[in-house]
Design a protein around this nucleic acid. Structure first.
Length: 362
DNA sequence: TAGGTCAACATGGTTC
DNA sequence: GAACCATGTTGACCTA
């Protein structure tokens, strides 16, 4: 607190505080001001008076809100001129006026301006003049106040938006990280299942060579499965995938089997495979493959296949295709699936490091 | 006394 | 070209 300035705390300032809440009581204020405007009371701070509400130092112009004329006259008697009001007295010696002092607007003036700003944050010329008149300010001061007020408003808006965006970003980041964790978990599960399936394929290979089974059993599974539920078109696709070519060699099962598979099929097949319990109704030895043989047998009865087509390659295909059954998400397909889901749910373009797997809706 | 606030100013762009 | 605006800066003032 600078010494020599009259701030709130004295009996005079208390009196001013009380009286100042009645801006219309100009006579009282005039009287008070004439008493306090004695230059000796300010000791060099000629412009400072008490800010009625905040106890802050305020300006000579603050008084103009009530009785500018009288006070200015008094001030001019002491000082010679008011540097802001008389352009001839305003000499710039830098970005701020030469001997000019920063003068805060009174709280009443600010409140008035605030209300006006709330109604309209732009200032038409007529409104500017009107406000200046009502507040006892220069139109330029009103214009400057509005400019500064808009700048402050914009800064606050930006801070708000930044806070909202940051909160949103943090939330999405958390979601993304938890998805990555889920992704890792699912990958581990898939790897575990693969490890379980591979030895079974070898067992199955021995078993099926005894029975001279056809590798078409995978297709049989699909076709039988789809016979009752799926549309004929789908079934046709599945069967055509399993037919031999003209040379008699088995054509590898392409992806359309998976791509055309309905979600319910995928889910049910998934649960069949994942349900690795020995008490499965289809299981005698190791569930899945016995299940497959059952379908294979029925298919052989209905539509005898060319058993000559069977080969070691076919058996390899069987193993390979078992891994591409609907129960196990195909990498490429699920890549697309992940993308699609990702776009639908997030769409924020995070750098997805590993999008190998799609997340099933649980 | 450092740092925040704010009135006032400077500058460059836009509009009429 | 005057008026206005957005933006950045300055310096007085205020407060912890």
């Amino acid at each position: 607190m600078a010494s020599g300035k009259l701030y709130g705390g004295s009996s005079m300032s208390l009196l001013l505080q009380n009286e100042s809440r009645l801006p219309s009581s100009s006579q009282v204020l005039d009287s008070l001001w004439l008493h306090t405007s004695d230059p000796s009371s300010f000791q060099g701070s000629k412009n400072m008076v008490v800010d009625f509400e905040n106890g802050r130092g305020s300006s000579i112009r603050d008084r103009s809100f009530f009785q500018q004329g009288l006070i200015e006259k008094e001030e001019n008697n002491n000082n010679g001129c008011d540097d802001d009001y008389d352009p001839s007295c305003f000499q710039q010696t830098g970005s701020n006026g030469g001997n000019s002092k920063k003068r805060r607007l009174t709280s009443e003036q600010v409140q008035f301006l605030e209300r006006s700003f709330e109604m309209e944050n732009k200032l038409e010329p007529e409104r500017k003049v009107q406000l200046a008149k009502e507040l006892g300010l220069q139109p330029r001061q009103v214009a400057i106040w509005f400019q500064n007020r808009r700048a402050r408003f914009k800064t606050k808006q930006l801070e708000k938006e930044y806070g909202a965006l940051k909160a949103s970003f943090d939330k999405l980041k958390g979601d993304y990280e938890s998805l990555l964790q889920q992704n890792d978990k699912l990958k581990q599960e898939v790897n575990a299942l693969r490890n379980k399936l591979i030895p079974r394929d070898k067992e199955d290979e021995n078993c099926s060579s005894d029975e001279k089974s056809s590798p078409q059993d995978v297709d049989t599974i699909n076709s039988n499965h789809n016979k009752e539920e799926d549309e004929p078109v789908m079934m046709e696709l599945m069967i055509s995938n399993s037919t031999s070519n003209e040379n008699g060699s088995k054509m590898p099962l392409p992806h359309p089997i998976i791509l055309t598979c309905k979600q319910e099929d995928a889910n049910s097949a998934k649960s069949d495979v994942l349900d690795d319990s020995a008490d499965s109704p289809h299981c005698t030895n190791n569930g899945n493959h016995v299940h497959h043989h059952h379908h294979f047998s029925s298919f052989m009865e209905e539509e005898p296949a060319d058993s000559d087509d069977f080969s070691q390659d076919d058996d390899d295909n069987l193993s390979e295709n078992l891994l591409t059954l609907p129960c196990l998400p195909k990498v490429e397909d699920n890549d697309a699936c992940y993308h699609e889901q990702n776009e639908n749910t997030c769409g924020f373009g995070f750098p997805v490091e590993d999008q190998t797997f799609c997340f099933w809706p649980y």
